[in-house]
Design a binder for these strands. Sequence first.
DNA 1: ACTATTATGGCAATCGATTGCAATCGCAAG
DNA 2: CTTGCGATTGCAATCGATTGCCATAATAGT
Lengths: 337, 337
Amino acid sequence: MTDRPRIRNIADLAKIAGVSPGTVSRALSGAGLISQKTRDRIQALAREHEFRPNVMARNLRIQRTGAIGVLIPLGHETGQHISDPFFITMLGLLADALTERGYDLMLSRVIPTDDDWLDRYADSGRVDGIIVIGQSDQSAVLDRAAARYRPLVVWGGHSRGQVHCSVGSDNVIGGDIATSHLIERGCKRITFLGDPTPLEIAQRLEGCRQALARAGLDDALTVFPAHLAAGIDESDITAYLANAETRPDGIFAASDVIAMSALRALSELGLAVPGEVKVIGYDGLALGEHTVPRLSTVKQDLTTGARNLVDLLLRRIAGEDTSSVVMMPELVARLSS
Amino acid sequence: MTDRPRIRNIADLAKIAGVSPGTVSRALSGAGLISQKTRDRIQALAREHEFRPNVMARNLRIQRTGAIGVLIPLGHETGQHISDPFFITMLGLLADALTERGYDLMLSRVIPTDDDWLDRYADSGRVDGIIVIGQSDQSAVLDRAAARYRPLVVWGGHSRGQVHCSVGSDNVIGGDIATSHLIERGCKRITFLGDPTPLEIAQRLEGCRQALARAGLDDALTVFPAHLAAGIDESDITAYLANAETRPDGIFAASDVIAMSALRALSELGLAVPGEVKVIGYDGLALGEHTVPRLSTVKQDLTTGARNLVDLLLRRIAGEDTSSVVMMPELVARLSS
DNA sequence: ACTATTATGGCAATCGATTGCAATCGCAAG
DNA sequence: CTTGCGATTGCAATCGATTGCCATAATAGT
């Protein structure tokens, strides 16, 4: 071992190589005006001494971090965790998409206590751009931040007049699809299971009402504001479904996670699915294939969604101005309806 | 608005405030030798101009980033995603634990193609410490890195002679518990569902063998190397279980995710659980409460686990030397066994 | 009023890599 | 053997905040 004096920076390596720090930098950072010979020599030297340039210094100099912040605002339900299957799925897909494009992913769970959590994060200089998953009840904050901070995209619903750039499926159409499906299957009394506080859920409910109106079933709807978090409201759901008089013959759950709770509640009550009650969820998560019976759902193409989010964000980082993307949801009829 | 000239750095603010950059730094960064009066004045000025010190510069100077890298090596199965429920759960818990301690979480999915992915990451200077989730088949790499890079902790199994600091449950005992439970329930032909390549799974299998030996059932075991990823091997599992001659009456799945696949396969085959076949999983994930029937499992306390990981890591960052933690797994008998 | 002491603030070096510009090298043509 | 020109490399400023050390202002003590 000749590497007695540990190489801590580019200057040390330069000394050993007998060149200037600038040359080492050029040799290590790929492109640049430098002869192949010295480049090889210096790279070999770096490898031999296990030297890797300090990323923070580089970041400071070139003014970018190579990281994207992924924020999950939990405004409407403090009980909901990052471990919610939807977030998790999205997170995994984003991680893959970002990795592919050479970015790291900085994860933060945010419980909005004030109005400038997003501004603070944006100005911290810790990331090159921000992806927010879900508007929760923070649309105003998002709009305000978006007006000033360009590299920001949001997964969620789209509404006219919205300032921030969003990617999501058309929740109104999705709600319509789900409800129409239940109607086609012969359902006459439909329950919407979900708390319509977040924009997306409200839109799904709107689509639901729209489909019912079209079928002349306006008063066939009951809304039961079950929470999103897995299992959190399960006994409530059970109690609600136990009542034979108000019991629906079709359930449109605002998310697959809620639908799962409903399935289990029904199973406990000994109600046959889809025989006595039909159930359809929303999201198209993988877990829907593992329920008993397999869950019908309205699928949002999250893979494409994640790719779109990353794509738009990188374009905004590059200075481009992008508009929101609304994707078409799709019926996946499995065995629960 | 008097903030015509945008304040981009501490020096600009200093000019406006009529003090030196050093003073501004002290005023903004909390403690320091500075009068309350000037501090207040400068902080007000900063707020007014929406100025927030650049984090990268700060990081470079003080030589820390305030971020912890969470790495998920996918050595043994490329099909497995970050969206695997176990990872996701762990990730959420880590995010919470780290946030509490004031750290950010930098997520990276790693597909080990060479032997120094970990060294590269450690030396990049992008994080203050690293948590690796699961040893996969990379124990050697982990040990090598740990010998040199202190702030590193690993979720996973513990084996004698191991160099890296790990946190995890005692998988041998866990395997024993699960198997003993099946034996008590009267199972005579047991199948271990899982690929024992990763250390943790191998240990669970070892515990399984140990319990069987104690009961004098040494040759009651079949090992079917189902993969970890949700759904990936489901048809294989179905085919295997369809064969009445080799069909077990007890299944010990190496993870809850695998157990879920098994449950669904059994349901498709019309086999009653727990009547004809008993099933027990491993991990104690929330999703086990949502299966039909509810999944019996060996629970690892992941909340405590995550807290331990963060705790040990921070102590290592502080220079302390810590030893591994092995937690006791616990039987959660639900309805599938 | 004058010195001793402490509380504040300024100066300048530092963290480590990047990069525009200038200097130098090598090679070829004259 | 020069001169010319492009290909390499060196020099030094820069990114923005932190902090040890010194100077000065403010306050106390006699």
